[in-house]
Amino acid sequence: MLGIYHDARSPVHRLPAGAKILVLIVGAALILSESDWSRLAIAGVSVASAFALARIPAGVAVAQIRPALWILGAIFLFHALIGEWRLGALITVRFVIVLALASLVTLTTRVSDMMAAIERALGPLRPLGVKPATVALCLSMAIRFVPVLSNEAAAVREAQRARGLERSLTALASPLILRALRMADSVAEALHARGYDPEGLEPSTTDEPPKGAQRPASD
């Protein structure tokens, strides 16, 4: 399955995922609380130069922010109507910069690197009962089954169309869920049969996907 990641060779791509996420969190907090236009301009120019450094085409960058633009436009318009156009512009500009920064992190970081970063970040939470390897296994299983269930959804929809039920969400969701739950049972049995022990040692599962998640279990 294709991610949003945009492949290129650049210093931004080479930065570790954890570092980029940290910059994003700190940057977003600073930008969203900034009311000084000259500092916002500096932030905007910095993010734009980072895009150039990462060799992201302008079209790709704009496509990431476009879905939020109409809401931001509506917010600006509303503030302009009540005479607060300056505040409206401030909110809009702040969000465009933060959204661009967040998109840059996603565009320059592979899904697998993000997953490894999540697993590392969860490490310190082990004393609270969080199992990073189990979380990673769960994420890779979910990724594996998105195309499987997506095909199932298309098949069920096709069958319901033949019965004239193409507008019924109930007729789509019920069989789809029953199939997903049966698949989950087969996957759990396959994992169990291969000696997977949820209470066992925490092995690293990011390098090789677990055997049970390799292929979808048949009904």
Binding site: T134, L137, C138, L139, M141, A142, I143, R144, F145, V146, V148, L149, S150, E152, A153, A154, R157, L172, A173, L176, I177, A180, L181, M183, A184, D185, V187, A188, E189, L191, H192, Y196, D197, P198, E199
Partner: peptide, 24 residues
């Protein structure tokens, strides 16, 4: 152990199901 593994599979498969429902 098997019931925990089953819970793990339910969570993963339901996450995938939410994704599949968004793709239609």
């Amino acid at each position: 152990s098997i019931s925990q593994t089953r819970d793990l599979a339910y969570v993963a498969l339901f996450a995938a199901l939410i994704a599949a429902l968004g793709l239609i």
